[in-house]
């Protein structure tokens, strides 16, 4: 097989793996109780969005994110849930991409993850404000969401850094950085 095809194949397979793993975690994390505040969750799926950003490119990370959000919403969500996941996910991916592009020297993967979690919750809060038509209520939730983002962002960043460290000691073949 020509090496270019092989590298394409490996990228595709990696993407498929990331989609399936993130979809499964995204679904099952709702059974892990965190705190009783709507919108607060661990964000385990973000591990794979982050990995996609590091291993592949932002375009592929975007595809993986969209595939995961739509899959999980179709199987186990509501249209409103889709709106929240989409707004949060897109904001988060965009912010993490910018963080990786502009300040990669000054932050580690934990910083990128923090940025992602923060903007994920910010995006959701904005949609909440729009849907309820009340900025006061949305702002009332915001501090809790920020504190949650700090906690989950650090945790997810920590997990991802270990994950990536491990993966980098495994030969992945051509096509992956």
């Amino acid at each position: 097989m020509p090496s270019q095809n092989k590298s394409k194949l490996i990228r595709l397979t990696t993407m498929a793996l990331l989609v399936s793993m993130s979809a499964v975690l995204s679904y099952y994390e709702r059974f892990i109780p965190v705190i009783n505040v709507p919108g607060v969750k661990l964000g385990l799926a973000n591990i794979f969005t982050l990995m996609a950003l590091m291993l592949l490119s932002w375009k592929e990370a975007l595809l993986i994110l969209l595939a995961r959000v739509f899959l999980v919403s179709f199987f186990a969500g509501s249209p409103i849930g889709l709106l929240y996941s989409l707004s949060g996910g897109l904001m988060s991916l965009f912010a993490m991409y910018l963080a990786l592009k502009f300040v990669p020297r000054y932050i580690s993967i934990i910083g990128v993850s923090l940025v992602g979690a923060f903007f994920h919750n910010t995006g959701q809060c904005m949609v909440l404000g729009l849907l309820l038509g009340s900025w006061q209520i949305a702002l009332g939730y915001y501090p809790i969401l920020v504190v949650a983002a700090l906690a989950t962002g650090s945790l997810i960043g920590y997990i991802t850094s270990h994950f990536l460290n491990h993966i980098q000691s495994v030969p992945l073949g051509p096509g992956l950085s």
Partner: peptide, 14 residues
Amino acid sequence: MVKKLRFGDLLIFL
């Protein structure tokens, strides 16, 4: 990039 905590992480957190 993957390794340890950097100064910017703390800054972002704060």
